[in-house]
Design a protein around this nucleic acid. Structure first.
Lengths: 172, 172
DNA sequence: TATTGTTATACTCTATAACTATA
DNA sequence: TATAGTTATAGAGTATAACAATA
């Protein structure tokens, strides 16, 4: 497979617009983490949490209902044990609590406490406030378009990747 | 600063479009890495390299001229020692070579070999080909808009983060 | 037997600190 | 003394494997 690919792709470059999109996403994503924007928003919210824990808290706040460990993991696109530890850390700080699932005693449902909900609200507000300032000069049309297109892009890409994985592209 | 922010941000939610953009970027970025799209493209290019090494190779290919270690680090937004190791790995595989900088004997310029250039071309073509398929159904107008808006977003966000860092938001 | 979650461990990527060589 | 790069080490984030409890 390495020496004889079905179609040698090197001949013609795909359209330039595509070539532009990919590095932008990378750059944005790395700017958000390397620029420590998330850490700042966390600090502004008065939280002494690392990023994964904040992710769990925001997932719960966004869900607006108690979630299982597995559900949180799915939404965050991470694996179960990772969530277990983050939830334990959040529990210790009194930001989430467990409520047993009456229908399935293997599972436990996680929900934010009052303090957790408030902290998540402060965090999200801080982050979005920063973004709102960054986009302050944008015409409303452009904001709408960006949100629409980015949503579609994310949907298309993830759907395609899921199919990819399931159809047996898995064993490279 | 934590107790008396100029405008308390918690009261009203910023517009919903903003709230939508952020998780999309996260989701996209994580889909690209978790979905192992990059690993697949690497394998299709016949490369036995990890992601950071591929990043270096693509940086060099994109630059179209020999780069210093420090220049590569800047472009990848990582730190020098990290690049040093990746370049060493690429050297061992014959994908890049060093050419001494005649004007500054402390520095070494890195350039891809023939094999390195070809491998980078194959990799980029594979990745973009995948993306092209994912976006096959999109109207050209939407693609253009997405590229334009995403570029502007990346520019605005990174510029703002840079200012942020330099103006002394640094010591939280 | 399949599923939910936990514990323990390992891996990937990247950063920081200490150092060398040249400027 | 300042800069380019290297070596060695440390840390954050996430994955895999082995296991326990319940379904």
């Amino acid at each position: 497979m390495t020496t004889e690919p079905p179609e040698p792709p090197a001949a013609e470059p795909p359209s330039a617009d595509l070539l532009a999109v990919l590095p932008r996403i990378t750059r944005l994503s790395s700017a958000l983490t390397k620029g420590r924007l998330i850490e700042r928003a966390t600090a502004e919210a008065g939280l002494a949490l690392d990023r994964p824990a904040v992710g769990v808290l925001v997932s719960l706040r966004t869900a607006d209902k108690p979630l299982r460990i597995g559900e949180i993991a799915d939404r965050m696109q991470v694996v179960g044990p990772h969530v277990t530890r983050q939830v334990q850390a959040l529990e210790k700080r009194g930001l989430v609590r467990r409520v047993g699932d009456p229908h399935d005693r293997r599972a436990s449902l996680i929900e934010p406490t009052e303090a957790g909900t408030e902290a998540a609200n402060r965090y999200v507000a801080s982050l979005l406030g920063w973004f709102a300032e960054a986009l302050a000069g944008w015409p409303q049309q452009d904001r709408d378009d960006l949100a629409r297109l980015l949503t579609r892009l994310a949907d298309d890409v993830t759907a395609r990747l899921d199919r990819f994985d399931e159809e047996g592209g898995g064993e490279v």
